[in-house]
Computed example of a mutant assay.
Amino acid sequence: MATPGPVTPEAPFEPSQPPVIEGFSPSVHSTSESFKEKFLHKTRENPMVPIGCLGTVAALTYGLYCFHQGQSQRSQLMMPTRTAPRASWS
């Protein structure tokens, strides 16, 4: 049985340089998109996300309004309604 020799590092560690990861090549992708541009880009890419967010906020707001008005039955009905679209996807 052969004994393993001493292990020598291929290159010394240099903290100012990014690590070298086999099979990974970082891309220098620098865009200066404003928040509005990025939001519109992402909305066009997946329009159901903002629609779902608005529906959730609407159900929550209406449920809180009903709670404030003393309509506890309707308020309780609105709480599971907030998650109905997400629950139907799973």
Rank of each mutant, 00 (worst) to 15 (best):
M1C: 12
M1T: 08
M1R: 06
M1Y: 09
A2C: 06
A2D: 01
A2V: 03
T3P: 01
T3S: 12
T3L: 09
T3N: 11
T3H: 09
P4W: 05
P6D: 11
P6Y: 08
P9I: 07
P9C: 09
P9D: 10
E10Y: 05
E10N: 14
E10T: 15
A11P: 00
A11E: 12
A11N: 14
A11G: 04
P12K: 13
P12I: 05
F13Y: 15
F13P: 01
E14M: 07
P15Y: 05
S16T: 15
S16P: 03
S16W: 05
Q17P: 01
P19N: 00
V20W: 00
V20T: 15
I21K: 03
I21D: 05
E22F: 06
E22D: 15
E22Y: 07
E22P: 02
G23I: 00
F24W: 13
F24C: 04
F24N: 04
P26G: 04
P26Q: 01
S27K: 15
V28C: 04
V28L: 11
H29Q: 09
H29M: 06
H29R: 13
S30H: 12
T31M: 07
E33V: 01
S34C: 07
S34Q: 08
F35N: 01
K36L: 10
K36G: 07
E37S: 15
E37Q: 15
F39Q: 02
L40S: 12
H41G: 03
H41P: 00
T43W: 02
R44Y: 04
E45N: 04
E45M: 00
E45H: 09
N46W: 02
N46T: 11
N46D: 15
N46G: 01
P47I: 05
M48N: 06
V49G: 02
P50K: 04
P50T: 03
I51E: 02
I51Q: 06
I51G: 03
L54Y: 04
L54K: 05
T56W: 00
T56Y: 05
T56P: 02
V57C: 08
V57A: 15
A58V: 08
A58L: 14
A59P: 06
A59D: 14
A59H: 12
T61V: 11
Y62P: 03
Y62L: 12
G63M: 02
G63I: 03
G63N: 02
L64M: 14
L64P: 04
L64C: 12
Y65Q: 09
Y65K: 13
H68K: 13
H68M: 08
G70I: 03
G70Q: 03
Q71L: 10
S72F: 06
S72K: 15
Q73R: 13
Q73Y: 08
Q73L: 13
R74A: 14
R74E: 15
M78R: 05
M79R: 12
M79I: 13
M79D: 10
T81R: 07
T81V: 10
T81M: 08
T81F: 08
R82N: 10
T83N: 08
A84K: 11
P85T: 05
P85M: 03
R86C: 11
R86Q: 11
R86T: 07
R86W: 07
R86N: 08
A87C: 07
A87T: 06
S88H: 08
W89P: 01
S90E: 10
